[in-house]
């Protein structure tokens, strides 16, 4: 029982990271109906920026917030400078552009920071936290806390600020949005910025667990896809629920199903993705995108 609770909490911690990344994917999907295959690599690169900032002597939280700001600006720049040029291009061209971005980030990270695996610090204490008879890793609890704060902030932003409202409007109905004076292009760019910033938080939280290297996000991105699909790729709330569920599921399967273990981690995600697509392609909370004839 104690092990079960422990595993669930650890699962929620990784699940929170999946949820953040899934949310980043959903944000871009809602505005453009595209899935950014480079989202994971962007997060990885942000994490390297944080690592460099700490390396030159910045304290953790200063580096943390500076990285978020840099990622926000970077995301906006990528949309304005590159993605905007492909606004009217076929989906496949855009997918190729995303792949191009993925290669650029991965290769540049490998070039600047080498492919050697680096430890990444945690801002939370080393010691485990004991509640009752159960022990929890403090990084797990801390990461979960950080994720919750990010999600609440995003919710407040989109729900209650007029900029957030304008972003939602621009995603839903660009023509009408222009007619009320919203600069739709900038709203899309801001969406990319926010997605990059949220991804950066996810990267910084997960890097302590999986260590920092240019290839670290491959598997995590796959789980984020699974999470986004599970919750419904059109639903931000679904992405969060999906992320947490997938995180817990992954941990429980890893701990209690002996033949799966770590070696088939990605396969579990594959099975999950195909399972969701077969049984309920719109996910738990999504609107049906599939057009039946």
């Amino acid at each position: 029982m104690e092990i079960l609770v422990q595993q669930i909490v650890a699962g929620l911690a990784t699940g929170g990271i999946y949820a953040s990344l899934a949310l980043a994917l959903v944000m871009i999907y809602q505005a453009t109906e595209l899935v950014n295959f480079a989202q994971g690599e962007m997060a990885m690169f942000s994490t390297y920026i944080a690592w460099s900032l700490m390396n030159v002597g910045l304290p953790y939280w200063a580096a943390f917030f500076l990285t978020i700001a840099i990622s926000l600006a970077g995301g906006i720049l990528i949309q304005r400078g590159i993605i905007r040029l492909f606004e009217k291009a076929p989906i496949l061209s855009v997918v190729i552009v995303f792949i191009g971005l993925l290669l650029i980030f991965q290769s540049t990270a490998g070039w600047i920071f080498t492919y050697l695996i680096k430890p990444f610090p945690s801002p939370f204490p080393q010691a485990a936290v004991t509640l009752g008879t159960v022990q929890f890793g403090s990084h797990d609890l801390g990461a979960l806390g950080v994720t919750i704060v990010v999600l609440v902030l995003l919710y407040v932003f989109f729900r209650y600020t007029s900029l957030g409202l304008a972003m939602r409007a621009a995603a839903q109905n660009p023509v009408s949005s222009r007619l009320v004076g919203i600069r739709v292009g900038w709203m899309l760019a801001l969406g990319w910025g926010l997605a990059a910033a949220v991804g950066a938080v996810a990267g910084m939280m997960v890097a302590h667990k999986v260590f920092l290297d240019p290839l670290m996000m491959g598997g995590i991105l796959l789980y984020a896809f699974a999470a986004a699909l599970f919750g419904g790729i059109t639903s931000p709330g679904g992405a969060v629920v999906g992320g947490l569920t997938v995180g817990v599921l992954e941990n429980l399967v890893g701990a209690f199903v002996p033949f799966v273990g770590h070696e088939l981690k990605l396969t579990v995600a594959l099975v999950l993705i195909i399972g969701v697509l077969l049984i309920k392609p719109s996910g738990l909370f999504g609107k049906a995108v599939v057009t039946r004839v």
């Binding site: 899935v35 396969t267 392609p281």
Partner: peptide
């Protein structure tokens, strides 16, 4: 078979997952 029901991007995601998982399955 699932492709019967999936729009373009969903299929891209499913096949992306397949490609990522393939080396693992081969090793297993």
């Amino acid at each position: 078979l699932p492709a019967l029901r999936l729009e373009g991007l969903y299929l891209a995601l499913a096949t992306f997952a397949l490609a990522l998982a393939a080396p693992q399955i081969l090793k297993y």
